[in-house]
Simulated assay, not measured.
Amino acid sequence: MTLLQGLHHVALIASDYARSRDFYTRILGLEVIGEQFRAERGSWKLDLRLPDGSQLELFSFPAPPPRPSRPEACGLRHLAFRVTALDAVLAHLQAEGVACEPVRVDAATGRRFSFFADPDGLPLELYESA
């Protein structure tokens, strides 16, 4: 019996909401499907959609504590996005001033991939599909 049907969303907390909003919408091109300020929490919530229907929720909170992400900290290791034209996406990111790691090849699948980081240093991966 299959219990899970797919990934619905991933939630991220940004240290600088405006900077992260710009990164995920303008630079990565995610579609805004909802945005609200939650006054009782002093918090923004931005709902973003990827072309496959999966979503990212981007939150802001006053003074969020830092969370270790490297080296190999327990918890979320990275968030990977599927792309069809890795070189074109990397060129776009680099033109926007986003540093990207050299392209590597997944030994198990033969697929190419690269890593970069969001404005808070969250490791993000681009994984080239067929």
Rank of each mutant, 00 (worst) to 15 (best):
A107T: 13
A73D: 12
L126Y: 04
G75I: 00
A85I: 10
E57H: 03
R112T: 12
I27C: 05
S129W: 13
C74M: 15
D16P: 00
S15T: 04
A88I: 06
A107V: 12
A39E: 15
P51E: 09
T84P: 07
L86V: 03
S114C: 08
P119I: 01
L7M: 08
E40F: 11
A99Y: 00
A95E: 06
A14S: 15
A99D: 13
L30R: 00
L50Y: 07
A11F: 04
G121L: 03
E125S: 06
D16C: 06
G110T: 07
S20K: 02
H78S: 09
E72I: 10
R82C: 14
A63S: 14
T84L: 10
Q36K: 15
A117Q: 11
H92P: 00
A14D: 12
A18C: 11
G34H: 12
L86G: 05
S60E: 02
R77C: 02
P65L: 03
S54A: 08
V10S: 07
I27E: 06
A39F: 09
Y127R: 06
L50S: 05
A18S: 12
L50T: 13
R77V: 11
P64Q: 04
P123E: 10
T109F: 02
L28W: 08
E40W: 11
G53S: 04
E35Q: 09
S54V: 04
E35F: 02
P68V: 09
Q36A: 15
F116S: 01
R70L: 15
C100F: 09
D106S: 03
G121Y: 02
E125L: 03
E31S: 15
F23W: 02
E96H: 09
H78G: 08
T25Y: 11
D106M: 04
I27Y: 11
V103A: 05
V105A: 02
E96Y: 12
A39S: 13
A99K: 12
A88P: 03
R26F: 08
H8P: 00
E72R: 13
A73K: 06
E101I: 02
L30N: 01
A99F: 10
A95C: 06
L76M: 12
H78L: 04
S43N: 07
L58R: 02
L4G: 08
Q55T: 04
A18T: 07
R77E: 14
